[in-house]
Amino acid sequence: MDAPHYVAARVQRALAEDERTVELGIRVDVRGNQIFLRGRVSAPERRLLIEDVAREAAPGLSVHNEITLVEVREPGEEEHL
C-alpha cells in the first residue's frame, strides 16, 4: 500500500490534470483508508465530479466529500480608498 502522502499527491494531481475537473483549489488529506476533500466550488455538479475523479485516483479508499458551494451574493457596500 502506498504511503498516505503519495496517495494524497496522486489525487491532488488527478484533480488538477483530469479534463473533467481541472481543479487546483481542493485540499486532499489521507488518514488511514479515508480521503478527505475540502474546498469551495461554484456548482453542485462540480462537487460530485471532483469526488468521482478522486475515487478513481485512489480506488478502495473511502472518500469524504467536505467540499462546499460558493454562494455568490449580491454586491455590498463600496469601499472608499
Binding site: R40, V70, R73, P75, E79, L81
Partner: peptide, 21 residues
C-alpha cells in the same frame, strides 16, 4: 499601493466596488 484580491471564493459576491476620490 492598495491591493485587492477579488477572486470569487474570497469576496463571495459577484463583484466588489472600490471608490477612488
Amino acid at each position: 499601493i492598495q491591493v485587492r484580491n477579488v477572486a470569487v471564493p474570497v469576496i463571495g459576491t459577484a463583484y466588489m466596488v472600490y471608490s477612488l476620490n
